[in-house]
Amino acid sequence: MALMQRLTAFLRSPRGQQLVDRGRRELAKPENQARLKQLATRLLSRRR
């Protein structure tokens, strides 16, 4: 449980918020969305 508390505290800190915002900006880019879709397709095809 201590790990979750530390993670939550970090994400609420200014540095954590910067990382969250950067992640959201990166995920909004079409090329990154395409990469994630390809990765998901590969992972799902391995399961079958």
Rank of each mutant, 00 (worst) to 15 (best):
4 M>P: 01
47 R>A: 11
48 R>S: 14
32 N>C: 02
15 R>S: 01
36 L>S: 03
22 R>P: 06
23 G>F: 09
9 A>E: 06
12 R>D: 02
11 L>S: 01
40 A>P: 06
42 R>S: 05
5 Q>R: 13
4 M>Y: 01
15 R>P: 01
45 S>I: 06
11 L>G: 01
14 P>N: 14
34 A>K: 09
29 K>N: 07
9 A>R: 00
41 T>Q: 13
37 K>M: 11
44 L>G: 13
43 L>E: 09
3 L>Y: 10
24 R>F: 05
30 P>W: 00
4 M>N: 08
2 A>G: 15
34 A>S: 09
23 G>R: 04
19 L>H: 11
17 Q>F: 01
28 A>P: 04
30 P>E: 07
29 K>W: 05
44 L>H: 12
22 R>V: 04
38 Q>C: 05
5 Q>P: 01
37 K>G: 09
43 L>I: 00
23 G>D: 06
31 E>Y: 08
45 S>R: 15
40 A>R: 03
25 R>L: 14
5 Q>A: 13
7 L>T: 13
15 R>V: 02
23 G>S: 08
23 G>H: 05
29 K>A: 13
18 Q>V: 03
37 K>Y: 08
17 Q>T: 03
30 P>D: 02
31 E>K: 01
23 G>W: 03
34 A>F: 13
12 R>S: 10
20 V>N: 05
18 Q>W: 11
22 R>Y: 01
26 E>C: 04
9 A>Y: 03
21 D>M: 13
8 T>W: 12
30 P>Y: 02
3 L>M: 08
22 R>C: 08
33 Q>S: 00
16 G>C: 00
2 A>Y: 06
9 A>S: 09
38 Q>R: 15
3 L>S: 08
16 G>K: 02
47 R>T: 08
48 R>W: 09
